[in-house]
């Protein structure tokens, strides 16, 4: 057997395993990441089955109006709010809003950011310079301030708010994908694909982007946590959804910020609901990062 044949035989003994399969295996063995998945599942189940799980309608008055509403325990698992509404039901329906906000605003930021990042990274030259300078410009405005500005400009509907928060994340994704593509553009496999005549568009969409996307996915998970916090912060500042009946967590906190003494549960419960969601997403994001990039593995 020649040396080449020997090597070939040796190689074929290994089960071929791709990056994603490897990553999945590593992710599955990471306890912290699994805790994150658990927390996220809680959020998803609460959001999807809010109507089935909630004992009452989120806006239904089921108890007395009171400046000193009943806390957890008693007839209502998590107590009532000042308008006699069931807190548990409102929290569950609030999960819907938060999850929606997280997913949609990141999807908006991600898709715009990916287009800019891909164009800048792939075309290069003055297009790259122009796009990246605009991104620098956007990054120089603190994100919450920009979101506040956009909401003031566009109005306070849920769609506008998700758009505003999404836009603030565009430069992050654009930069990340651009950097990642720049690293791939000169790689051997790209050269190989180009030399066998793969057209530019397919080269970008079929080869370069799939190989550059890993860090973007990690960032998207982490950004989802930020987006949830940011929308809650907007609500907290009185710039949340214009519809006052929406059980948005940040708004629930803002409405009761001065009732910490008499009805702490009205601030603490939505607060911890936010923390659980963001913690779940952060744990998953970290887990994914470690799974995808073996260098960062501890």
């Amino acid at each position: 057997m020649s040396v080449a044949e020997a090597q070939a035989a040796e190689l074929s003994l290994e089960r071929p395993s791709g990056l994603w399969r490897d990553a999945f295996d590593r992710f599955r063995r990471n306890p912290a990441a699994l805790v994150g998945v658990g927390l996220l599942l809680v959020l998803i189940i609460a959001a999807v089955f809010a109507a089935q799980l909630a004992p009452h309608e989120p806006n239904q008055q089921v108890g007395p109006l009171s400046t000193n509403p009943a806390g957890p325990g008693g007839g209502f698992t998590l107590g009532l709010d000042e308008q006699g509404r069931d807190v548990l039901s409102r929290l569950l329906f609030g999960a819907r809003l938060s999850l929606l906000v997280g997913v949609v605003s990141v999807a908006i930021g991600l898709s715009i950011g990916l287009v800019f990042g891909a164009v800048a990274g792939y075309i290069g030259g003055w297009v790259d310079t122009a796009i990246m300078r605009v991104m620098d410009l956007l990054l120089s405005v603190p994100s919450l301030l920009m979101a506040i500005g956009l909401v003031t400009l566009l109005g306070r509907g849920m769609v506008q708010i998700m758009f505003a928060v999404g836009v603030t994340t565009v430069p992050i994704f654009a930069r990340l994908l651009r950097g990642s593509i720049l690293g791939q553009r000169e790689a051997d496999y790209v050269l190989a694909a180009r030399s066998v005549g793969v057209p530019g568009r397919r080269l970008l969409l079929g080869h370069i982007i799939p190989n550059s996307i890993a860090p973007v996915i990690v960032q998207a998970t982490l950004t989802m946590a930020t987006a949830i916090i940011e929308v809650a912060a907007l609500s907290f500042l009185g710039l949340g959804p214009g519809d006052p009946s929406l059980p948005e967590w940040g708004k629930m906190m803002a409405d009761n910020a001065n009732r910490l003494e008499s009805a702490a549960h009205l601030v603490l419960l939505p607060g911890f609901a936010i923390v659980i969601s963001t913690m779940g997403l952060n744990l998953i994001g970290d887990g994914l990062r470690e799974a995808i990039d073996p260098k960062l593995r501890s």
Partner: peptide, 10 residues
């Protein structure tokens, strides 16, 4: 992790 997940205003 807790520090990162806590909203500032909370």
């Amino acid at each position: 992790l807790i520090g990162i997940s806590f909203p500032v205003f909370f």
